[in-house]
Amino acid sequence: MISRSTTHDFYLGRGPDAEWIGSIHLGTCACSSVEKIGLARSADEFADLVNSFLHAAEVGQVGEVTHRGHPWPWLWPTSHGTDYTHAFDRGTVWTARRGQRWSMRAGEYIPPGLGETPVVFPHGRDTCGYTGIDAADTVGRRYGPLLGETHRHDLHQLGLRILADLTLPSPGPAPAQLVELRAQLPPHLRYVINAHETTAELEIEVFGYRDGDPAADATAQALTALPALYGWTDPNGAPPRFGTRVLLADDERHLTHPALADRHTRAVLTTT
């Protein structure tokens, strides 16, 4: 059952020549129709189930629907940025999450193995709305699992979101990747993030360690994973969404940094 806001794309076939037949930004309602689509046993049945599902969602106002033949609905250029992609191919329905791999076949988990079908999608650059740094220049880009709705954020907004994710209780079940990251960060740590718009960089200063603390390097290493979680990576070397630089506050900064004079303050964002 779907219990949170998710995005879905639907295709006939897999690969660059697959036929896109619709998309939906599904609201927080529980909806079993997505699971029913996975039971299709022919391309025609799959297309009919998708069409019925999209029309029902549109009438019931439970999601933002885009039918085939209309412009690509997302700000990201391919289905690599969509939460769930469903495709009918070789007599069954396959599902990929955020373009990572085709891991589900008709509801059955398929473990990684040799000979997997590459996750390649038709390109939507001509109609996608994203206008950031070379954002749609490659179908090879991989989008981070925590990108989610932050694809609309500028660097300042993104810095605030990251600080909240690192320091505040989650309002609901947190994504596994965020839980894993927070497990690597001791709860007593405090942060200052400087958002450098001109260089697309978040400079993260960490308070809570003393000089020579062996745990500090592990924390710094964990925080360098933020661009891969909230942005994208490109094997062809195109610019990332943002970069990070992690600094560990020295003993003097612990005493004199005015932004964290109040011991109850866990995090501060500044911009330059």
Score class of each variant (00 low, 15 high):
L202S: 07
P186N: 09
M104K: 05
T233Y: 01
P71S: 15
G113T: 06
T270R: 14
L158S: 02
L181Q: 05
L75C: 14
G91F: 07
A106S: 15
C31G: 01
L223S: 02
L163E: 01
E19M: 06
I2K: 09
A135Q: 09
E205K: 12
G107H: 08
L269E: 11
A215H: 14
C128T: 08
S23M: 06
R266Q: 15
Q177I: 00
T271N: 12
E149C: 09
E108A: 14
A225D: 14
R4H: 15
L147F: 09
L269T: 09
H151M: 14
G243T: 13
L260F: 08
L166E: 03
P240T: 04
G91I: 11
T85N: 06
W102D: 06
D134I: 05
P258S: 08
P16E: 06
T219R: 00
L160H: 10
T265G: 04
H8N: 15
S23N: 06
D9A: 15
S42K: 01
Y209E: 08
Y84N: 15
V139H: 00
D137N: 13
T219G: 10
Y109Q: 15
P214F: 03
R141G: 02
E116P: 07
G140M: 10
A238N: 11
D89V: 05
P187L: 11
C31E: 07
R210A: 11
P118Y: 04
L269C: 11
P235N: 05
H55R: 14
D234Q: 07
R4D: 15
E180A: 15
A259P: 00
Y130I: 02
L147Q: 02
G107F: 06
A259C: 10
P73F: 02
G99M: 05
